[in-house]
């Protein structure tokens, strides 16, 4: 869809409200649902990757420096990563 979703009228809705652009959820910001954010103490991190595997949103990735972090655009702050981290590297911090 070329139009932004705030500009779409009912006439722009595809038949059956089909989404013709697969992966459109990538553009949907769920980060603002969050009340807590995960923060990493990278000094103790074993780089086991369990946080990335357990993350139900798939929003944890390994950055260019080889460190794990959460994309805050999608992170809903569920805290699963902090709960599962074997070395307790991740602390959930209240959003300000």
């Amino acid at each position: 869809m070329s139009k932004n979703e705030t500009e779409l009228t009912w006439k722009d809705i595809e038949v059956g409200a089909i989404a013709c652009d697969p992966g459109s959820a990538r553009g949907y910001k769920t980060g603002d649902w969050r009340s807590q954010r995960p923060t990493y103490n990278h000094a103790r991190c074993l780089k086991c990757g369990l946080c990335m595997i357990y993350c139900p949103e798939g929003c944890i990735y390994e950055n260019a420096e080889g460190k794990f972090e959460a994309s805050l655009f999608h992170c809903k702050g569920c805290g699963v990563c902090a709960k599962e981290c074997p070395t307790m590297v991740i602390t959930m911090v209240e959003e300000g």
Partner: peptide, 29 residues
């Protein structure tokens, strides 16, 4: 049927529609 599911032309049916677009979807229905 003009929009049959086709692996070569993937679409999402019954997709998520937040408040910003749900009213438009229902009106079109």
């Amino acid at each position: 049927y003009p929009f049959p599911l086709d692996p070569n032309k993937p679409v999402a049916m019954g997709d998520f529609a937040p408040p910003i677009i749900y009213t438009e979807a229902k009106w079109s229905q």
